[in-house]
Design a protein around this nucleic acid. Structure first.
Lengths: 317, 317
DNA sequence: CATCGCTTGATAAACGCTTTCATGGCTGAA
DNA sequence: TTCAGCCATGAAAGCGTTTATCAAGCGATG
């Protein structure tokens, strides 16, 4: 019973007599033998890791996308490695990229939801096969799975205008490029409708910063509709508005983005642009794998879908 | 300029003249050379991957723990690989474990927050270095970083009893063993106080199931205090109670578990047992690495801390 | 009965790196 | 000037697989 025989039994690359096979299998059982992954990777050149570069993995959209990526990867026998991007300077992007690159990678997926993602993408050598998950728009020319938050924001804004609001305020979140697709879509819709374009209120995308944004909006007094950069911020905005005595949706309508699992449980339940991040993650994997295999694959796209709940209503007159 | 010289420059394992070094570095620059990770792993035997086995990564506690693990791993130059456990049968646990084991692993961390985690742990061969992140309690004898949700549930229950509630109801979530530490702590506190032990309401840990649980509780009529298995469920429970006309906390006090980022934004803000999952994840990595290095490390423990907010109050009399 | 072809097992090379070992050049002391 | 001793460098072996090549054994066929 030789080494190659074992290899053949394991890989099925050549016929082995039933007898020998049984022998080999039993020995493997007994010894608890596991092929050495490094040696195998070296000999075959096959890489089994998809590396995911992302900032804050605890946020809903990120976590969902990662989940989708992992599912799709596992389905084809690949493992996903996670590297977090935690500074937004170029140096920390380089460090993270280096760490990720030190693995035997089949490919890489960058969640380009924010500036950290863009930085990482920029720091990548162009030898490594990569797919980004990005907002539709410009950026380094790299294969991407796109979510069209430009269109999403436009639709959301139009929906609010359609309810009769004179204009729509916007609470921005950090974006990968500047300005973000969400911001552009919002502005575009306002301009197309001839509505005034109010000053943007910035946030960092967390509920807590939404609280501050909401407080600032409440102080303005003339706000009747708000489009938030994501649901977490929208939650904070609603809370702050309520704390300041505004009723949602009677006094102010609020629309979120992403369709967080808690959006339908919130009081009032949150009208939002639903995005299927998990699906987007899966598409990114398929896209990457397709390109690796040399199969031409169309750029995957996903357009957010308006989910109307109870946080929006026509303005009080 | 020979191969070993390059290796020496890169690893610093032996002195190289400044001249040669410069030469080598320039060549590396020009060629965009990257050492082959698989070959390196094979030659050195050093493994640079920590594999994390976990079920649903989008849930707050899981995502936070993963984040902590990744941070700690990255700090020592390791990469984390993620494998999701998505069935709760033994077969899918075996598949997931096999996939993870097919990498050159430094070690493995299993998030044993639920039955999937336990299954995975059971499917692990005892040759691989592993640390589990588990509720304090029994289980397979494996090094663990423990969170004491038994004590946490006890404290929470005692807090509610201390407010004057006659008893405390419990909305359970799926647990790794059965019964869960949270359930045990809750029951223990009730029994110690001589309070009646109400029938448990089950949930699957999601906001939606919390909604159902809350509706059932509302129908009982005699409920004044509820301890929920986690915050997401608590959110659902609160919502359902409110929908059914109960006021929180005036009619019913609700306590959650984990301190979700939205807990303080909720209406009313949620009293909860705060757990630092990220820290727990970091501790698990240190623990694992310490044991690998042969350094004796004490079992890390973390006890949840009561955070009192506005969802609890003395019972209406 | 001998030969051919086919199946199956063994031997050896290769993957790209690290590490040990030997060598040759240099320095410094005698 | 010479030789011991040291240091930088290159040659070679080894890490655990896969795969190509080769040899042997077997049954079938002429």
């Amino acid at each position: 019973m030789s080494v190659p025989t074992v290899s053949r039994v394991l890989s099925g690359s050549a016929p082995v007599s039933a007898d020998k096979r049984r022998q080999v299998l039993r020995a493997i059982q007994e010894l608890g033998y596991r092929p050495n992954a490094a040696a195998r990777a070296l000999a075959t050149g096959r890489r089994s890791i998809i590396s995911v570069l992302t900032s804050d993995t605890t946020r809903y959209g990120y976590a969902s996308a990662i989940r989708g990526i992992e599912e799709a990867a596992r389905a084809v026998g690949l493992v996903v490695a996670l590297t977090m991007l935690d500074g937004d300077d170029e140096e920390s992007a380089r460090v993270a990229v280096d760490l990720a690159l030190d693995q035997p990678l089949a490919g890489m997926i960058v969640l380009e939801f924010d500036i950290q993602g863009s930085r990482a993408l920029a720091a990548l050598p162009d030898t490594v096969p990569v797919a980004a998950v990005s907002s539709a728009g410009q950026g380094r020319s790299v294969p991407r799975a796109l979510f069209d938050d430009h269109a999403g924001a436009r639709d959301a804004t139009n929906y609010l205008l359609g309810l009769g609001h004179r204009t729509v305020h916007h609470v921005g979140i950090p974006a990968s490029g500047r300005p973000s697709g969400r911001l552009l879509g919002w502005r575009e819709a306002l301009e197309a409708a001839g509505a005034p374009v109010p000053e943007i209120v910035e946030s960092d995308g967390t509920p807590r910063s939404g609280l501050q944004a909401g407080a600032r909006l409440a102080r303005r007094g003339d706000v009747t509709a708000v489009l938030c950069g994501n649901d977490e911020v929208a939650f904070g905005v609603i809370k702050a508005l309520q704390d300041e005595g505004s009723r949602v949706p009677e006094d102010v309508s609020v629309v979120g983005f992403d369709d967080h699992p808690l959006a339908e449980i919130w009081t009032p339940s949150l009208t939002t642009m639903s995005q299927d991040f998990a699906e987007l993650g899966r598409m990114a994997v398929d896209f990457l794998l397709g390109r690796l295999a040399g199969v031409p694959v169309a750029t995957p796209r996903s357009t957010p879908r308006l989910v109307v709940r109870k946080s929006t209503a026509p303005p009080a007159r």
